[in-house]
Design a protein around this nucleic acid. Structure first.
Lengths: 342, 342
DNA sequence: TTTCGTACCGAAAACGTTTTCGAAATAAAC
DNA sequence: GTTTATTTCGAAAACGTTTTCGGTACGAAA
């Protein structure tokens, strides 16, 4: 019932544990004959090396940690899939933790992963994270860490992101190009770099095209579990505050769909009365009516690329070579649909 | 730079490794004085026990494995969240693997988890899984395994599920009660127990209410990544084949929304011309127009309950006590919305 | 014959814990 | 003063691997 060990194989064949170990790993100093014997017996006994012992000996677990603000999220769950698929190819397992957008939890989870001694960490920051000691500690201990999507520029490590500012600029520009004269913005929470960047892209597009920037047209939402409701609320508020707005660039598809639903309900025509551009290209955006113009954000690819970078760094560290941090920017694209005019 | 070990603390204080270890774990046979000394030094040196060594010694890793057919899925991602939240409370980490609805992959992943020596395994079966040796092997090695949602009745282990047959019966009955005379069913793939049960519930509701069961009204879909498209296709086919159908019970909300979209596009009025009941209560179902009547399937809770059961079994096994397998059935409910008549 | 090289094997240390068991030292009981 | 408890400590084994370093044995070269 108990798992088979090298020792048992050795005793069976009347040879030493050393030889068994070497035979299984095709060392050159064991004869073909004994190699064959060992391998055969190992197979029939269904020998599996004890991972705990191997980990202790080799000081690595072939496991990485992943901390993500939310799991139930079209974009993030795609990132997870990307990471896992790539990790599996390289023989790595991934432990997933959800920070729930909480800095405190994020800190604890980093600690947890460090004491579990994962080989590396992938993280997308919580909205509430403004202090980065926990991340710097990881790096200080020579543990590879790469951030993706929700990053902190200040932390010296690899990052894989999109150019949020540029994408937001594209989105807003598209509203301008299709005739919108007064454009609002539903932005994300205050801290995350990407909601800041999207806001800046929005603002720059306005100014570059001789349109005034009006802070009262910028609505904030936390983009958490309640995103959809936030979209509805902001839409209601917008209709009360500003009846002259004819275009909105919205931080996230989910919020955009909330707003869209509210407009549909109130009889506000999209795009005739108000045009909307979302962000993410969640597949639901192409299903809702009217279909949503949005920015395509490559979640699966981001996951893959993030793991690849982490993998490189893990290998470098293992060889005691210095790692060079990279900032990888993935391409985005505007996806034109029915929620904006031609 | 290297992590602190017990040995280093011991040398610092001129005591033995044994005492340090015991002091940190509050053994009764070490004096309060030395305990205080050890703990203080451990804190200042930021000592973290080497998980690899602890694992080897204790033969457990406080890690479980989770195999799931798809991650990017409203229901399953909620299950994941439920599992992780509960696991975290009990100090367990969870390694997630995606079987991609493939039996071969699932088998490999079970192997992977076993050689990684996780303390237990949670699994929702792939559609393609018809052979259960890989699962029985796990159980034969006294490793706790609990199945959820997509289960195999034949495997002797704990399961947490919903009563799919009853839920499907409720759904179909509701169509009948609201006046539908000819009711189709978009079912899931052939193998999974839950799509079988939902089909059986549909069939029984018809027969119990003196309505003929017509196999040509049952359409199959794989319910994989392409679910939405499958819904559209099946809807098209249905309109061609049977213009007298006035109600459909659909295996999954996503497929239902695909069908709904197609009906909207083709000018078929829902629920006036055709009523629809979905399954899952994905939040999008309350957003789409018309909103979708559906069965609420408690994903988050299912994850929690599944982990709790696994946890119990892991504790039993650790104490060498026999485990009793449970089949836990979670409650579902019909959620009435606009896609069915009053 | 001796010497050298090669092919094959194994003893032993190491990774960092946990835990058993006995020993020493002190305090309590007679 | 001797015996018995009680408190406090540590040596050592164990978990299962990996890897270093010597050591045989045997054939070939001298």
């Amino acid at each position: 019932m108990k798992p088979v060990t090298l020792k048992q194989i050795a005793e069976h064949l009347n040879i030493s544990v050393t030889t068994v170990s070497k035979a299984l790993k095709d060392y050159s100093d064991v004869s073909p004959k004994t190699k064959a014997l060992v391998k055969e017996l190992a197979k029939t006994l269904n020998y599996k090396p004890n991972a705990f012992a191997v980990n202790l000996r080799t000081k690595e677990s072939k496991t990485i940690g992943l901390i993500i603000p939310v799991i139930v999220h079209h974009f993030f769950s795609n990132v997870i899939r990307g990471i896992i698929s790539q990790a599996e190819k390289k023989g790595y397992l991934v432990i997933i933790l959800q920070s729930n957008e909480s800095y405190e939890l994020e800190k604890k989870q980093i600690d947890l992963l460090m004491s579990q001694r994962v080989d590396g960490i992938l993280i997308s920051l919580a909205n509430g994270t403004a202090n980065f000691n926990h991340l710097n500690d990881v790096l200080a201990q020579d543990k590879p860490l790469v951030m993706f999507d929700k990053i902190a520029k200040i932390v010296k490590c690899s990052k894989v992101i999109i150019d949020d500012r540029k994408a937001a600029y594209m989105a807003t520009k598209h509203l301008i190009d299709t005739g919108c004269k007064r454009i609002a913005h539903f932005r994300g929470a205050l801290l995350p770099q990407n909601s800041i960047d999207r806001f800046l892209g929005y603002k720059k597009a306005l100014l570059d095209n001789n349109m005034p920037y009006d802070p009262s047209l910028v609505y904030i939402c936390q983009c958490d579990d309640m995103s959809f409701e936030e979209g509805k609320k902001n839409a209601q508020q917008l209709l009360k505050d500003h009846n002259d707005v004819d275009g909105i660039f919205i931080n996230t598809d989910l919020v955009a769909i909330g707003a869209l639903t509210e407009f549909n309900k109130q009889g506000v025509k999209v795009p005739e009365d108000i045009s909307i551009v979302g962000f993410s290209n969640w597949f639901m955006s192409s299903v809702i009516s009217p279909t949503l113009t949005t920015i395509n954000q490559p979640g699966f690819e981001m996951g893959k690329v993030a793991f690849k970078q982490l993998y490189k760094e893990m290998k470098r560290i293992k060889k005691n070579k210095p790692v060079v941090y990279k900032e990888i920017v993935l391409e985005t694209a505007l996806v034109k649909r029915e929620s904006t005019k031609k």
